[in-house]
Design a protein around this nucleic acid. Structure first.
Length: 273
DNA sequence: AGTGCGACCCGAACGC
DNA sequence: TGCGTTCGGGTCGCAC
């Protein structure tokens, strides 16, 4: 389940494989993946574009082409594979970019939730979907003051607000649980009541968790297994997510699971009062 | 404006 | 064994 750390890994992996290659064709088998522009325009505009670089903003992959950015959001299960030209199409391959190297870059997504946008380079940051995004966790502007200002009017649970990509990008459900556990904050605590000290903990632990996940994440993107949808070695480092009924590593209290905004939320009732 | 929640999607896990 | 139901994940859009 790609969150920011896995998007980062995909970016680095693909860079080594597709830079400087040219798109000579594109086949779209599930049109809803293409959000902007129309499928027809998308196909027309992307032909003959080369991959110049790959960047990331939040959970969005940014394929830099000659004239456009191809933005790609993997949502829960999107993946990219490089295959030989005309190799048998997998059931879940929905968009295929034919390259000038007799290879194909294929977007595979079991849930069909992923989205792509093709935006001219000049205004990529001024258009949806990037224009509404909040700060990267590593941004120096991510301060207690910034968060205080964003949170002060919100009575929503802190867990819910941590997932709001307009404030901080890159935090998904799993990491929100981990960040709050490390910060010893109850997931249901209203955002406006989070103290300055707690805000600093959230900032520090967001960076800690995401950095650690990036370091652990890389290699096992493909070994998709558990029902929790967790891949990568980071799953073995989870302190609270998915541990309902097991002892808290800190105080031995049994970890509880509740729903917050409809999402599975794990916490230690003793450590996170 | 802030909030709540269904829709999107489908494979795995669960209940019977 | 088989069948139906529930769950999960990120984001959007609609209703209040």
């Amino acid at each position: 389940m790609p969150e920011l750390p896995e998007v980062e890994t995909v970016k680095e992996t693909l860079k080594r494989k597709i830079l400087n290659k040219r798109i000579v064709g594109v086949n779209i088998y599930h049109e809803k993946i293409i959000e902007f522009p129309s499928v027809k325009e998308f196909q027309k505009q992307i032909i003959n574009q080369q991959f110049i670089d790959i960047k990331r903003r939040g959970k969005w992959l940014m394929f830099e082409l000659n004239d456009y950015y191809l933005l790609s959001h993997l949502r829960m299960e999107g993946k990219y594979n490089i295959k030989k030209l005309n190799e048998q199409l997998d059931k879940h391959e929905h968009v295929v970019f034919v390259l000038d190297s007799n290879q194909e870059l294929r977007y595979n997504d079991v849930r069909k939730f992923g989205k792509m946008h093709l935006i001219t380079k000049d205004d990529v940051y001024d258009q949806v979907p990037l224009k509404t995004l909040g700060l990267e966790p590593t941004d120096k502007s991510l301060t207690v003051k910034y968060l205080k200002d964003k949170y002060k009017s919100k009575s929503l649970p802190i867990k819910t607000v941590l997932l709001d990509q307009q404030i901080i990008v890159g935090i998904g459900n799993i990491y929100a649980n981990e960040i709050l556990f490390l910060s010893k904050i109850n997931p249901l605590k209203p955002s406006k009541k989070i103290t300055n000290q707690e805000l600093q903990l959230i900032i520090d632990n967001t960076n800690l968790v995401l950095k650690s996940a990036i370091e652990a994440g890389g290699t096992t993107i493909r070994s998709y297994t558990s029902s929790e949808g967790i891949h990568g070695r980071f799953q073995h480092k989870l302190l609270v997510h998915g541990r309902v009924g097991q002892e808290c590593f800190d105080c031995k209290t049994i970890i509880e699971k509740i729903k917050v905004n409809g999402r599975g939320t794990y916490y230690c009732p003793t450590c996170q009062k």
